[in-house]
């Protein structure tokens, strides 16, 4: 369970998040909808522990971020553009990251890469990937360790029809595994298809909640 209580964040004197109150349960997909600059990415960063709230708190499974722990125990994210080491291949990049926790092996990474439509044997360095390939690698990185919390910021960007279907399938599987998934997306129709609940944001505030 993720609880955001009276969450505020100010950056350079501007309020980017104002009084956010949310309770997010396991096994559901939550959508964040809103214009550019409405605070969707900032909210994701706050859940990830990447920014320190100016007010309020984020609690994940009873542990307050910033107090009991700095980051969630198990999280996968794709926030803004997928960023990897430009001179390594996709597989190498994922292997390096997976080695940190050591929970999955090369076989699992290869399987995930194939799921997202990438060839694990591809020797091309990341910097030569097309935008769609970069996005797929970012998605693979977010899902590969089967995390309990998945945060996806504009995941459908640069994906073709097959890619979109692939992502929907991954979301469905993760939902069955009781992960809490937060997806930020401009595409209202796409979001309504995949999300169980949608929060509409504007100027850092939650304006509307649709089930």
């Amino acid at each position: 369970m993720i609880i955001l209580k009276n969450l505020d964040k100010e950056l350079n004197g501007n309020a980017v998040l104002t009084d956010i109150n949310l309770e997010l349960s396991k096994g559901k997909v939550y959508g964040l909808q809103g214009k550019n600059g409405s605070g969707k990415t900032m909210l994701m960063r706050a859940v990830c522990g990447l920014i320190k709230p100016t007010g309020g708190y984020v609690e994940i499974d009873g542990e307050r971020l910033g107090k009991e722990s700095a980051f969630p125990e198990s999280v996968g994210c794709l926030i803004e553009n997928p960023a990897f080491v430009p001179y390594y291949s996709g597989l190498k990049n994922l292997q390096i990251l997976a080695d940190i926790k050591g929970r999955i092996d090369k076989k699992d990474i290869c399987l995930m890469m194939e799921r997202v439509g990438l060839d694990p044997g591809e020797k091309k360095p990341f910097r030569k990937y097309s935008l769609g390939m970069k996005q797929r690698l970012g998605i693979a990185c977010a899902f590969m360790e089967a995390p309990d919390i998945i945060l996806l910021d504009e995941p459908f960007n640069a994906l073709d029809t097959e890619g979109v279907e692939m992502l929907k399938n991954l979301l469905g599987e993760a939902k069955e595994k009781e992960a809490t998934i937060i997806v930020a997306c401009h595409d209202k129709e796409e979001l309504e298809l995949i999300a169980d609940e949608i929060f509409v944001m504007e100027n850092g505030k939650i304006m509307e909640h649709k089930s």
């Binding site: 990830c48 990447l50 700095a70 980051f71 999280v75 960023a83 080491v85 990251l97």
Partner: peptide, 13 residues
Amino acid sequence: KYGIQTIIRAKSR
């Protein structure tokens, strides 16, 4: 560049 992915896996600043 790629610190976000490593730091969330490290789980600790």
